[in-house]
């Protein structure tokens, strides 16, 4: 059941949800380095009051089955992200420059899988 504050059926059929409740903790993005992995990977997000709490919560939410050896917690608000509308401008020019893709080399069999 949703709490009364966030119910879309309060006065009109689709009342806006509005801002996050004042009591809600800030959002953190969690990155974990796996036991055999080399770099930290984004695993999800969670709420916590501060950085220390975010690491502890990450330990409980994301590393219950021995998944990690190192945890990073980053405030979600500190992440700068590209916007989906700019996709064309950012990535498409790469597609017609075939010389940027190393597809013209024959790989010797001895090298094996790359």
């Amino acid at each position: 059941m949703s709490s009364p504050e966030s119910s879309p059926y309060s006065d009109t059929d689709a009342a806006p949800h509005g801002k996050a409740r004042a009591t809600e903790w800030p959002l953190w993005e969690i990155f974990i380095r796996g036991q055999h992995g080399l770099s930290h990977r984004h695993v999800g997000s969670l709420h916590a009051a501060d950085a220390e709490g975010a690491i502890k919560n990450a330990r409980d939410v994301y590393t219950r089955r021995n998944e990690g050896v190192s945890i990073w917690a980053v405030p979600a608000s500190a992440i700068a992200a590209s916007s989906p509308e700019e996709k064309g401008a950012l990535y498409e020019p790469a597609n017609d420059k075939v010389y940027r893709h190393p597809t013209f080399f024959d790989i010797p069999d001895e090298v094996g899988a790359m």
Partner: peptide, 11 residues
């Protein structure tokens, strides 16, 4: 009260 604490207590 919150999901994170719920999981932590269950752990």
């Amino acid at each position: 009260p919150v999901l994170e604490e719920d999981i932590a207590l269950a752990n």
